[in-house]
Design a protein around this nucleic acid. Structure first.
Length: 576
RNA sequence: CGGGACGUGGCGCAGCCUGGUAGCGCAUCUGCUUUGGGAGCAGAGGGCCGCCGGUUCGAAUCCGGCCGUCCCGACCA
């Protein structure tokens, strides 16, 4: 049993002005964290208790899934990162420095290199596989813009697991085990989440799923099917090519140039020419590691940079600036078009469906109309290059898609042999032949998960923790600490609850009741036991549910039992 | 990295334009009263006004540089 008078949990009525999102604000106000530098925090006792609860669930589920815990260093020598090729590829997010002997190191933002190095040294035989190792460890990423408290910090705790298998089939099984373990983890935390298909980004690999906690404040947009189980990050979500692409417009005359003074945007051009935006061919110029590329898409859709990047197999991609647009198209931005454009061109399927369209003329204040794809220009390829829209059907079953926002709390990847090949993590198969291990990696942000839980579970009074990750399960409040009977009743119920294995915070401060109630609500402790003077004098106490506000007045002799019962009911809500 | 803003007791802010004894609310400490949803009265402590330089008799205030922080964007397992 912990006593408030002996516990550092500095709550505040007012919020520091730099806290933008609910979870950040409430973590500060509830005395869980304090900022040390941008994106870098100290975890106070109650905040650390929450993280430890999350970690315990992670350990239990990782162990249950057959993974073994290790602990790798935060400081990693550059040689390992050079071997995988990421020393140069990772960019400024990787915090680099030198030791006294001028050797280069980085603070690890993720640990594929270190784990692969370990496994290649220790694993020789197919008999040692499959192997799944995990750690819960401090990570550092020098984020461009840290924000939202623990949601996007620079230093943070992460559970990262890495699997090594003999072949693809076995690797798929390891991946499935982790996927299932993740579902159990988030169910045990009482979170409303979706696992969605995602892009693999910098980490690489063949496929991946993100685990998204549904919250309006989420930084990611996701789609999910209202009918089947399909879900995807919008940057990944597949778009079904529209049916009925006409080869040529019946009766479309030759393309001709029209004056469009000052009309640059789809909206302006559409209105000025009286043409449906769906028939406009939007032309975007990109600079990429694979050279300059023009990307075409129907005026009603948006180009998806991730899809373009993947289609090209490029390492990086960025929209060309105004100067580059002039160089490439010979016109200011807003007037680029595929006809006669001396740049490699690819087009989204939506362009194929345009019978006769309008597009920029590569000339200031001019557009072309009656442009026919295939006749007036021929893209190198048609592909899915646009971002899914509200009108798109589910690519799996054709039903409607629902858009929502989510917080990415976990990510699982099938890595394949990218790292094991580059770093020679090989083993001998039963025939004595050398083979490359097939890898997977699996991350969960510990602090971010706690923050996401708050985003999803709070009200006007503060946090409403799911009981499985609450810093305490029960708060016991003697309304007046100068009344001996009240204090005695509080002490005895607190002791009884502690004896039954509950985590109790006793508010023994000499404060007014209002302050204690407000603090208990703010801290989000799921169950509150209140001992008031009149009730105690009459032999009663109260049990209150933080979430619903429901209060039970029960005899002191039954108080502990009722409290335990309520805690058990709340725990049952967090069953895997 | 581009755009914008802000740095004044622990927190939230005023003062700056128009230079002249550094203020308010909350919090903290002491005493008394109060005790079921952030109490009242009385008293007290706490500041290199982000840092460095310049202008001036005199700078929180004007000027320059730097640092830090936040917001928007670009970017991002």
């Amino acid at each position: 049993m912990i006593r408030c008078t002996r516990y550092l949990m500095p709550t505040t009525k007012e919020t520091p002005s730099d806290a933008e999102v609910v979870s950040h604000r409430l973590m500060l106000r509830a005395g869980l964290i304090r900022k040390v530098a941008s994106g870098i925090y100290t975890y106070l006792p109650a905040g650390l208790r929450v993280l430890r609860k999350v970690e315990r669930i992670l350990r239990e589920e990782m162990d249950r899934a057959g993974a073994q815990e290790v602990l790798m260093p935060a400081v990693v020598p550059s040689e390992l990162w050079r071997e995988s090729g990421r020393w140069d590829a990772y960019g400024k997010e990787l915090l680099r420095f030198r030791d006294r002997a001028d050797r280069e190191f980085c603070l690890g933002p993720t640990h594929e290199e270190v784990i692969t190095d370990l496994v290649r040294r220790e694993v020789r035989s197919w008999r040692q596989l499959p192997l799944n190792l995990y750690q819960i460890q401090d990570k550092f990423r020098d984020e461009i813009r840290p924000r939202f408290g623990l949601m996007r910090g620079r230093e943070f705790f992460m559970k990262d697991a890495y699997s090594f298998d003999a072949d693809d089939e076995s690797a798929a099984e390891s991946y499935r085990k982790m996927y299932d373990a993740y579902c159990r983890v988030f169910r045990r935390m009482g979170l409303d989440f979706r696992a969605v298909e995602a892009d693999t980004g910098n980490i690489g690999g063949s496929s991946s799923h993100e685990f998204m906690v549904i919250a309006d404040s989420g930084e990611d947009a996701i789609v999910s099917c209202v009918s089947c189980s399909y879900g995807a990050n919008v940057e990944k979500a597949e778009c079904t090519p529209q049916a009925g692409a006409a080869a040529a417009a019946p009766g479309a005359g030759p393309a001709r140039k029209v004056a469009t003074p000052g009309k640059r945007t789809i909206g302006e051009v559409s209105e000025f020419l009286g043409i449906d935006p769906a028939s406009l061919i939007k032309t975007l110029l990109f600079e990429t590691s694979a050279g300059d590329v023009a990307v075409l898409v129907s005026g009603v859709f948006d180009v998806n940079e991730v899809k373009v990047k993947n289609h090209l197999g490029a390492d990086w991609i960025r929209l060309a600036g105004e100067d580059r647009v002039r160089e490439l198209s010979g016109a200011p931005s807003g007037f680029a078009g595929p006809v006669g454009l001396p740049v490699r061109t690819i087009a989204d399927h939506s362009v194929q469906a345009i019978a006769a369209g309008a597009t920029g003329a590569n000339e200031r204040d001019a557009h072309l109309v009656d442009v026919v794809p295939g006749r007036d220009f021929a893209p190198e390829a048609y592909a899915d290059l646009r971002t899914v829209s509200g009108k798109d059907p589910c690519p799996r079953c054709g039903a409607a898609l629902r858009f929502s926002r989510g917080i990415e709390v976990g990510h699982v990847f099938r890595l394949g042999t990218r790292y094991s090949e580059a770093m020679r993590a090989v083993y001998l198969d039963p025939e004595g032949k050398e083979r490359v291990a097939v890898m997977g990696c699996y991350g969960i942000g510990v602090g971010r998960t706690a923050a996401a839980a708050i985003e999803q579970n709070h009200d006007g009074d503060g946090i409403v923790w799911p009981i499985s990750i609450a810093p305490f399960e029960v708060s016991v409040i003697p309304v007046n600490v100068k009344n001996r009977d009240v204090v005695g009743a509080a002490e005895s119920v607190g002791t009884a609850l502690t004896d039954r294995g509950l985590e109790v915070l006793l508010d023994d401060r000499e404060e007014r009741p209002g302050i204690k109630f407000k603090d208990a609500d703010l801290a989000g402790i799921p169950v509150r036991v209140t001992l008031g003077e009149k009730n105690v004098a009459a032999g009663f106490g109260e049990v209150r549910d933080r979430k619903t506000g429901e209060t039970l007045r029960v005899e002191l002799s039954m108080l502990a039992a009722e409290t335990v019962a309520l805690v058990e009911r709340k725990k049952a809500e967090c069953a895997p």
